[in-house]
């Protein structure tokens, strides 16, 4: 770790003015930032501890939606009765990620802002455009089993590692942020970005802005959802591919479909055109396969991760099948339904 100064913000205003200073980083749960500092990947000049700001609450909104405080621990969110009732897909996705200990500490905002787990990004002995812009991307042509098949660039093929964000993407969540210029709302689809030429920038959050909460709109999907995560061991591992699927069925016909993929791109991956293909069709393998093929049509492998294209296609079909059956994937019973 580098040497840094530490201050604890007691109010949001204090945090906002503290973060305005260059070299400052916000510390919430710290499960990712402290880790990155230990690997000498993150070297903030000063840490602004915001963990005591009053942003831990979870609120049931009158419109049937939810407001998740930026500092709500992941475990609190996943086990909250209102979340389990109103956004069971989100609760399930959170429980698919990390470990019980990490979920007790990691926060909503921190989860949104967690950085890729690409081994090259984490290893200062190797080049990495995300860590040192312009140095190159050794994952291309290297060990890239975990890497992106969609939306990658020649500068970076890293993936966003979150499970929670995949569900948030499927649920069209909105990220509430506050900055020097006031408050604004960022739709989740616009919050994370693709790497392009600037893979060092993960999100559209501006310098000096702080996430205050995340709104999850009323979920019209009832039991027709599933979060299916496939990985190299059955727990405590990042996704090779994950799928958040949700369907609204009317008279046996798909009225609305959401499919978000994790582990495949620099951001949770949504393809609304592919989702639209499902609308008006009876739920079934044929329809699901068509949508899955559309989603994966632009996918490109890099050798070690070629298999993820086919794996993702099958996972989409299965997750949609689970959603249609109203049989969401259990996160403790490892048998895929």
């Amino acid at each position: 770790m580098n040497r840094f100064s530490y201050i604890r913000a007691e109010t949001l205003d204090e945090a906002l003015s503290a973060i305005a200073l260059p070299g400052s980083a916000l510390l919430a749960g710290g499960t990712n930032l402290v880790d990155l500092m230990k690997y000498d990947v993150a070297k903030p000049a000063r840490l602004v501890d915001i963990s005591r700001l009053p942003l831990r609450g979870i609120e049931a909104l009158d419109d049937g939606g939810l407001r998740l405080g930026a500092l709500a621990p992941n475990a609190d969110t996943a086990y909250d009765a209102r979340v389990q009732e109103r956004a069971p897909l989100l609760a399930s996705a959170i429980l698919a990620g990390a470990s019980a200990q990490l979920r007790n500490v990691a926060t909503t905002g921190g989860n949104l802002l967690q950085r890729t787990r690409c081994a090259y990004f984490y290893d200062p002995c190797t080049p990495c455009n995300k860590r040192e812009p312009g140095s190159g991307c050794p994952a291309i042509g290297g060990v890239n089993r975990m890497h992106a098949i969609l939306g990658a660039s020649e500068a970076c093929i890293a993936v966003h590692p979150s499970d929670m964000c995949v569900a948030l993407a499927a649920l069209d969540a909105r990220v509430n942020v506050q900055g020097p210029g006031g408050v604004r709302v960022i739709p989740i689809a616009d919050f994370h970005r693709l790497p392009g030429e600037q893979p060092q920038i993960d999100s559209t959050l501006l310098a000096g802005e702080i996430i205050t909460s995340v709104d999850v709109p009323a979920d019209p999907f009832g039991p027709h959802h599933s979060y299916l995560k496939l990985r190299d061991r059955l727990s405590y591992a990042f996704a090779l591919v994950s799928v958040a699927a949700a369907l609204r069925l009317e008279d046996g016909i798909i009225a609305q479909a959401r499919v978000a993929l994790g582990g495949v791109a620099h951001k949770p991956w949504r393809d609304q055109e592919a989702e639209a293909l499902l609308v008006g069709l009876p739920p079934g393998r044929e329809a699901f396969d068509q949508a899955a093929r559309a989603i994966l049509a632009p996918a490109v492998g890099h050798g070690g991760n070629d298999f993820k294209i086919e794996l993702a296609r099958r996972a989409v079909v299965r997750a949609l099948s689970q959603a249609a059956a109203g049989a969401p994937q259990s996160q403790s019973d490892k048998r895929v339904r």
Partner: peptide, 20 residues
């Protein structure tokens, strides 16, 4: 793993000062 305020956490990822 230790219990901080009754919750299990990874103490290696917690800066001590933050738990004053």
């Amino acid at each position: 793993t230790v219990l901080v305020d009754g919750r299990r956490v990874n103490s290696c990822l917690i800066l001590a000062l933050t738990r004053d």
